[in-house]
Design a protein around this nucleic acid. Sequence first.
DNA 1: GACCAGGCACATC
DNA 2: GATGTGCATGGT
Length: 227
Amino acid sequence: MTRRTRTDADARDPLPRMFDALLTAWGPQHWWPGQTPLEVIVGAILTQNTNWKNVERAIARLREHGMLDWQELHVATAEELAELIRTAGTYRVKARRLKAFVEFLFARHGGRLENMKRVATAELRRQLLAVPGIGPETADAILLYALGRPVFVVDAYTRRVLLRHRLIDERASYEDIQRLFESVLPRDTAMFNEYHALLVEVGKRHCRPSARCAGCPLDGFPHDEEA
DNA sequence: GACCAGGCACATC
DNA sequence: GATGTGCATGGT
């Protein structure tokens, strides 16, 4: 996919143009700003099917109790963590998942992110997916937002926006959609970061069944009518 | 009081 | 392989 220039790609592919339209309209979204990789990883697990505000409360409680530390998380029991992360919802499940990641970090990488960072992206993704509680979206969020790897994070909003604009069909898998982005965009961590955040925003504001298309930065792109 | 939110595992068909 | 369900809190 290196056969054409960026200008030609912009002329042909809707995905780069969509990014430009969204970024021009709304600017940078500043997802996960000024936080440590540890906080990003914890947040990625806690935010599963959960409003981010509730996750922030849970992270704040972990911080108050000095738990934003791999060694402390390693020593703590799932029950102790569960009590601290209640506000994130599904807290017993998420406490188990948090522990599962920490167990993986210690068993496989000596409890140090620095060791994990030496592993190539594709291999690391396989390792993360083998951790119970880490699926494709959480794995990719960790790779992109915590480790700075250029992988595109796909979520429910991404799927909805692309469906609405006829760029995929209902049967497209997570990996199908990920490949779609990664094959037409430059492999740029900062851009993937921003694009994902912008897709979530347009999904929330305009691509929900109850939302309106009026004022959507993507209104110039072909799309289906409301069902 | 429903519905939703920056998913995943597991059971079942 | 596709679909359904439990997990559970806080905001709207």
